[in-house]
Write a protein that binds this DNA or RNA. Structure first.
Lengths: 200, 200
DNA sequence: ACTCTACCAGTCCAAATAGACTAATAGAGG
DNA sequence: CCTCTATTAGTCTATTTGGACTGGTAGAGT
């Protein structure tokens, strides 16, 4: 009975974190959010506690001990089981091996770029380019700092990947912006009518 | 009272589709799934009907007419309102203008690449490269066909974008694979111990 | 003409999620 | 020393979601 919960996107980050050391859910939350630059986009409390419970039922993690300081809520520290470690490796392997189509907001929006009208599109894309460049420069700086400080490359490998894609996106945005400006990329008639309509 | 439902990822595809012409929910579902290569990753019935209801309450679309053929369930055709069109443009503009960090499964998995061990990582990455190349070649073929058939570039612009990113990913995967093979990218000690453990 | 399968179009509910709320403690500032 | 705020950990519920289920129609095969 493969519960849907076991498919949710925070399973991997949770297993990954527990690979490092046992922790209790609240700490996972704090830690995952702290690192959120790298993984674990949106982790919410409900989902996390729920996921931990389901993973425990599945036998991939086990409560290690319960701690209590003073009269605070008791907290349960969980550790990865052997089965959990195997599962992590299985998932890792399959997610790396098999590319899946995923959809960014931007991809969805670009499909309707026409609705912005040529000028609107140029404006918005230019701005995106600017922000991407700024953010990417910042990321590059941080990465260089980490490497200079002696962090092994394997530990920042996902930042390298993210940077590669970011650079590709910048290149694409710049080239399309330029083509729109120069008129090399023209508006099809239908959408052009659309745009005229805006001002009429 | 900004209902959460208005933030859900299928709002844009729905508004976008209605920009073309009025339709009823079932047809939206069919159509969005048909095109799903481009946008609208996972649209499910419940979400769609729910979203349409919420968008209607918000005044962004309005029931145009109710049709009934024979004794089939009555179906309601919805059309975009003026407010809806404005909202679409607003969202489009903001989603293009403002890059947001989004997380692919792959990005999440790469962070733990170390847990696969060097050979496992090389294996999995090689396979990913192979599949990406294959899929990308296929996409390129389809895009060229469309262009050759006279489809305006603006109508396939999101495919061009997706291809750019795919090529960048291939390049990255290839280069990391190669670095791992050649030993230019080495395993840090901690993870190396991890890997030895697997065989012991 | 008569089953049988595939498609049409929705409704509806169990499962999952977001995030408000609870309840306790430690330390800052007066 | 006493109040006030930030932090620690969790529980709990209203919304949302996935997708099973319903009840009908159109053709295909016999």
């Amino acid at each position: 009975m493969p519960r849907r919960a076991l498919d949710n996107p925070i399973v991997l980050p949770v297993l990954g974190l527990l690979l490092e050391q046992p922790t209790h859910p609240h700490q996972m939350l704090t830690e995952l959010r702290r690192r959120s630059d790298a993984h674990a986009a949106a982790i919410t409390r409900g989902t996390l506690y729920n996921t931990v419970a389901t993973l425990t039922e599945a036998g991939w993690l086990a409560p290690l001990e319960r701690q209590r300081s003073g009269n605070r809520p008791e907290r349960t520290v969980y550790a990865l089981t052997d089965a959990g470690r195997e599962e992590l490796v299985r998932r890792l392997d399959s997610q790396i091996r098999t590319p899946k189509r995923e959809f960014s907001q931007f991809l969805g929006a670009v499909a309707y770029l026409g609705a912005l009208g040529r000028d609107g599109a140029v404006e918005a894309l230019t701005e995106r380019g600017r922000r991407l460049r700024q953010r990417t420069a910042e990321d590059e700086r941080r990465l260089d700092e980490a490497l200079a400080a002696g962090v092994p490359r394997m530990h920042v490998i996902e930042a390298e990947y993210a940077l590669s894609l970011a650079r590709a996106e910048i290149a694409w945005v710049d080239s399309v912006t330029e083509e729109l400006r120069s008129g090399a990329l023209t508006w099809p008639t239908g959408a052009a009518r659309e745009r005229e309509g805006e001002d009429a």
